[in-house]
C-alpha cells in the first residue's frame, strides 16, 4: 500500500470508533423511529406494520399539534430572551473580573452537579404555598394569605431559564473572552463614552457567542418535557409532552414517532439556518 493511500485511510481508521458509536446509538435508533412513524396503532394488541401516511398527515394538518408546536416555540423563544438578558451581564462580569474568574466559572458550573429534576423541583419549595417566599412574606406581614405562584406558564419559563442560563453564560463568556480589551480602550480614547464603546464595539463582536447560546437554549428548551410536567398546570404542555403521552400513556408508538420526528425536523431546520448564516464553529467553541 502506498504512503498516500495509507495517509488517506488513517483519518477514517481513527474516526471509526466515533462513527460506529454515532451510527449505532443515533442513526440506527433514528431509523427505527422513522420506520415506526409509518406504522399504524391498533386499538388493542401489536401495531400494524406497513407504509401508512396517516400519522404524518395528522401531525402536519391537525390544528392541535400545530397549536402545541407554536406554543412550544413561543416558550422556548421567551426563555431564550430571558437567558440572554440575564446571561449577558453575568458573562460580562466574569470576563472583566480579574482575580476570581476561576471561582466564578466554577460557581457557574456548580448547578450541573445537581440533577436537573431536583433543581426544577426546588422551585416548589421556594414558590409553593408553604414555600420559602410565601413564608417570608407572611412572616413579615406583606401578605395575609399565601400567593399562588406555582403551576402556570410563568413558572415553566422560570424553571427553563434556571436550567438553561449556564449554557447561555458560557457561550457569551467564551465570545467575550476572545475580544481584545484594548479595542474598548481605543474607542474611548477616540471620544466614545463607555456605553458607546460597549454597544458599538464589544456587543457586535460578542454577537456570535450570544447567537450560539441562544441556539442552544432554544433547542434544549423546545425539547424539554420535565419542566412543564413538574412546574406546569393542567393546560401547560410542550411538544415533547405530547410525544411522551403518545408513547407512554396512549401506547401509540407510531404517532409518537411521527411527532418526535416532526419536532426534530423543526429544530433541525433552525440549526441549519444558524449554520448557514453564522457557522457551527462558534457553537463548538462555546461547548468546548
Amino acid at each position: 500500500m502506498s504512503v498516500e493511500a495509507r495517509e488517506r485511510r488513517q483519518p477514517w481508521i481513527l474516526l471509526s470508533p466515533a462513527l460506529g458509536a454515532v451510527a449505532l446509538l443515533l442513526l440506527v435508533p433514528l431509523l427505527f423511529i422513522v420506520v415506526y412513524s409509518f406504522w399504524l396503532r391498533s386499538a388493542v394488541g401489536p401495531d400494524t406494520a406497513g407504509f401508512h401516511l396517516d400519522n404524518w398527515q395528522r401531525a402536519l394538518t391537525d390544528p392541535f399539534y400545530r397549536y402545541i408546536l407554536f406554543n412550544t416555540l413561543k416558550i422556548a423563544a421567551i426563555t431564550t430572551f430571558f437567558c440572554a438578558l440575564l446571561g449577558y451581564p453575568a458573562a460580562y462580569f466574569i470576563t472583566r473580573s480579574s482575580g476570581n474568574k476561576l471561582i466564578l466559572l466554577l460557581l457557574l458550573m456548580l448547578p450541573f452537579w445537581i440533577s436537573y429534576i431536583i433543581r426544577t423541583m426546588s422551585w416548589i419549595n421556594i414558590l409553593g404555598s408553604s414555600g420559602a417566599l410565601n413564608t417570608f412574606l407572611l412572616s413579615t406581614g406583606v401578605i395575609s394569605s399565601p400567593i399562588q405562584m406555582l403551576y402556570n406558564e410563568a413558572t415553566v419559563i422560570l424553571g427553563l431559564v434556571h436550567f438553561l442560563l449556564p449554557f447561555m453564560v458560557l457561550n457569551i463568556y467564551v465570545s467575550l473572552d476572545g475580544i481584545d480589551t484594548n479595542l474598548e480602550d481605543a474607542a474611548t480614547s477616540l471620544g466614545a463614552t463607555r456605553w458607546q464603546a460597549f454597544t458599538q464595539v464589544t456587543l457586535p463582536l460578542s454577537l456570535p457567542g450570544l447567537a450560539a447560546g441562544g441556539l442552544l437554549c432554544f433547542v434544549l428548551g423546545a425539547g424539554t418535557y420535565i419542566t412543564p410536567l413538574i412546574l406546569g398546570g393542567p393546560r401547560d404542555a410542550m411538544f415533547a409532552n405530547l410525544v411522551f403521552e403518545a408513547i407512554i400513556t396512549q401506547l401509540n408508538w407510531p404517532m409518537g414517532s411521527a411527532l418526535s420526528l416532526l419536532l426534530l425536523f423543526v429544530l433541525g431546520a433552525l440549526v441549519a439556518l444558524y449554520n448557514r448564516y453564522l457557522g457551527m464553529s462558534q457553537l463548538t467553541k462555546g461547548l468546548g
Binding site: 397549536y67 402545541i68 393546560r235 404542555a237 405530547l242 403521552e245 400513556t249 396512549q250
Partner: peptide, 10 residues
Amino acid sequence: SETFARVQRG
C-alpha cells in the same frame, strides 16, 4: 386517552 390529551390542553 387521545381525546383527553386534547381536552387537557384546552
